[in-house]
């Protein structure tokens, strides 16, 4: 096969793009395998050093915080629970509310949809005080419920599900009705399997969204056992800055690399559905 010049250019651009994304991660990873002192004196590294196991072991198991009890592992678990809860509930609630908006032809469906849509303009940061007031009045501060609940309503996902349901032909519903499907079984037997790829995509986005929350957990949690990974980044920084004479740069890199793993795993597991959806159009 002859290679066209255009293809070469396209590949060069793609390779540049890949390098742009991969090189910083590699530097972080390589640097996380050295001694903090080495990095401070010699700069960031491109090759793997000999401190890999020690650094990661330290990051995962060292107890920190004011109480000297919270570990990075605990923070990972917290973040994972929070992101999982947010992503799952967001997908479930959005899919169901979109179902109601599209298939139940009640009079206010359109105004209600736009009302939901407008909430896009009011992100959590804007309504953080009222949200905090509500959650604290409910006694949910320092709990997973409090971390997850205020973030589960999603206008974006509702919008996408609504648009998708609207493309499903009416005959499918009618046919299912004649086959004896009720409202619930139509949702479970038809809409959910048909929107598999949609669900996977939304789940990934929402997982990353939940995982990278910073302000809300910061305000919500006073007990260290509910700290999340993103909060931890700040804590490690402070701790090393004040506690020890030298910043523990290598451990920080190790921490960053570790913190990337859960979202990466989610993408890796769910991309199968993504690709499947792209290859075979089942509609």
């Amino acid at each position: 096969m002859k290679i066209k010049p255009l293809q070469i250019i396209a590949h060069i651009i793609l390779i540049l793009g890949v390098l742009l994304m991969v090189v910083p991660i590699w530097i972080s990873f390589a640097s996380s395998s050295h001694d903090s002192v080495t990095i401070l004196t010699e700069g960031m590294k491109f090759h793997i050093g000999d401190q890999l196991a020690r650094n990661y072991n330290e990051v995962l198991n060292e107890k920190g915080g004011w109480s000297e009890e919270v570990t990075a592992a605990k923070m990972f678990i917290n973040s994972f629970i929070m992101a999982l809860g947010i992503a799952t509930l967001k997908v479930v609630i959005s899919a169901m509310s979109a179902y109601a908006l599209v298939y139940y032809r009640f009079k206010l469906a359109v105004p209600i949809f736009w009302l939901i849509f407008i909430t896009l303009l009011v992100p959590l940061e804007v309504r953080i005080f009222p949200s905090y007031k509500i959650v604290s009045d409910l006694g949910l501060t320092n709990s997973y419920t409090g971390l997850i609940l205020p973030l589960v309503a999603s206008a974006t996902a509702t919008f996408f599900f609504r648009q998708f349901y609207k493309t499903i032909p009416d005959e499918l519903l009618e046919s299912a009705k004649l086959d004896g499907a009720n409202a619930w079984s139509f949702f479970i037997d038809f809409l959910v399997p048909l929107s598999k790829t949609m669900i996977a995509a939304m789940f990934i986005f929402m997982f990353v969204y939940g995982y990278s929350q910073y302000l809300w957990p910061l305000i919500m949690t006073t007990a260290e056992e509910y700290w999340t990974v993103v909060m931890g980044m700040k804590i490690i920084y402070t701790e090393s800055y004040e506690g020890v004479a030298l910043p523990r740069t290598a451990e920080r890199f190790a921490y960053i690399i570790l913190s990337m793993i859960p979202p990466v795993l989610v993408v890796v597991f769910l991309q199968k559905w993504f690709i499947k959806g792209l290859i075979q159009t089942e509609k």
Binding site: E171, E174, S175, A176, K177, G180, N182, E282, K283
Partner: peptide
């Protein structure tokens, strides 16, 4: 009577097969 209870079967113009 609800369509599901009427015991009728319908063949649609575009078949409306369940794609999944």
């Amino acid at each position: 009577v609800d369509p599901s209870e009427r015991d009728v079967a319908m063949v649609f113009q575009n078949y409306a097969l369940y794609p999944h």
